[in-house]
Write a protein that binds this DNA or RNA. Sequence first.
DNA 1: CGTCTGACTTAGT
DNA 2: TACTAAGCCAGAC
Length: 124
Amino acid sequence: MVRPRDGSTKYNSTFAERVYALVRRIPPGRVTTYGRIARAAGAARSARMVGWLLHNAPPEIAAVAHRVVNRHGELTGGWAWGHPAVMRALLEDEGVTFVEEFCVDLERHLWEPEDDPIAMNSTE
DNA sequence: CGTCTGACTTAGT
DNA sequence: TACTAAGCCAGAC
């Protein structure tokens, strides 16, 4: 289910569904990138679509969209909450650490859609 | 219908 | 390491 704007669902492709499904799978306290999601969804070169889909996503997805950052870990979509500080607060509340004011520590919290770090890593 | 823009990424300079 | 250009697909004008 995509519903780009007014329920057109003209490109109700599996791409959007996969993106949303992947975003939903992001565990709390972990983050991933647009590119990783795009690649896992089958469109490695369409990272922008992921961003577009998230901007256009239903509330259910927007609720976990703060776990998606760009390849540098920057909160590029932070303004969707009114201010990146809001997104940062959400991430910090889940235990995500930051290397910069609006840049998460990817080395620590990066989650790859194709794998599940939490399953094979318990403590930290 | 052509052009610009965008919650991006990669490669080249 | 930082900036630029190109690729990507869909929406707004």
